[in-house]
């Protein structure tokens, strides 16, 4: 049965697109058919992070409006053959998306893929609402920082009240993904601790993604961090998150950069 997963947050810039790409690629590497869909019409980023920006011919709006078939708009990833991307339009805006059109596209995608990962735009307006409407599961991306936490709480409220599942009286499975986590700063009290965030949001945690330069590097290379550098700390955290998403009961830990630990050892030896 196909699953629609929305990656949302409320707050902008916390790591939704990065996480959509990383989680999508990690899921596809398990052999499942995955499509990542960009719902940020007019400000599209998913195609850049996936390295597909030079191959975009048709987009989600074209398909919604019937100007193109879904198969014409889908772009197959060059590195993982079970991974595809459905980009957003850069020239139009969110008003071009219609609820019926999105429903049609999602239903068609359900026939072709095991996972449909929807990259939500920031905010709580139409774009974000349409991205979450058909979701079966949700990943709520949050930075350990007060405004991000409050916005995530708002989004959780919307997931519980405005989605198709909520209206049918069912609850969407919501998973917390804590991103840009800096252990040292949390210890110094400059960042919210994991327990504080969990106490406020009260949804199960599927991963803690450490702050890392690898993420920016991957994004500039046009590759999800789980493909460009699977051994890096953030990539390993994303792989763990995908295992938890599929039901595995993995102990929570924050991966650290193995490289820097090694170089520290090295330095100490030759002091």
């Amino acid at each position: 049965m196909a699953k629609v997963l929305v990656v949302t947050s409320g707050k902008g810039g916390v790591g939704k697109t990065t996480s959509t790409a990383a989680l999508g690629a990690a899921l596809a590497q398990t052999g499942q058919n995955v499509v990542v869909v960009d719902f940020d019409v007019g400000l599209r980023n998913l195609d850049l992070v996936m390295g597909a920006e030079r191959r975009v011919v048709f987009d989600l709006i074209n398909v919604v409006q019937g100007d193109a078939k879904l198969s014409q708009a889908l772009i197959r990833d060059k590195r993982v053959e079970t991974l595809s991307i459905l980009p957003a339009s850069q020239t139009r805006d969110k008003d071009a998306l219609t609820a019926d059109g999105v429903e049609r596209v999602i239903n068609e995608l359900r026939e072709k893929f095991d996972w449909i990962v929807c990259d939500s735009p920031a905010g709580i307006e139409r774009g974000a609402q349409l991205a979450m409407y058909h979701a079966d599961e949700a990943v709520v991306v949050t930075n350990p920082e007060v405004s991000s936490v409050r916005d995530s709480d708002r989004i959780i409220g919307l997931l519980d009240s405005t989605t198709a599942k909520a209206k049918a009286g069912e609850k969407i499975n919501k998973h917390l993904l804590l991103t840009r986590y800096d252990q040292a700063r949390a210890a110094r009290g400059e960042m919210l601790r994991v327990e504080d965030v969990l106490e406020i949001l009260s949804i199960p945690l599927i991963g803690i993604i450490p702050e890392s330069e690898e993420v920016l590097r991957a994004s500039n290379l046009g590759s999800p961090v789980t493909l460009s550098n699977p051994d890096s700390a953030p990539a390993r955290a994303y792989f763990d998150a995908v295992r938890r998403l599929q039901g595995e009961n993995l102990e929570m830990q924050v991966p650290t950069d193995r490289k820097s630990l090694f170089s520290k050892l090295f330095k100490w030896r030759f002091a």
């Binding site: 709580i124 409050r150 709480d153 708002r154 409220g157 919307l158 519980d160 009240s161 009260s202």
Partner: peptide
Amino acid sequence: ASLVIDEPVRSGR
């Protein structure tokens, strides 16, 4: 009369 809510009340509600 009383209203019982047995889930957290989310921001914005």
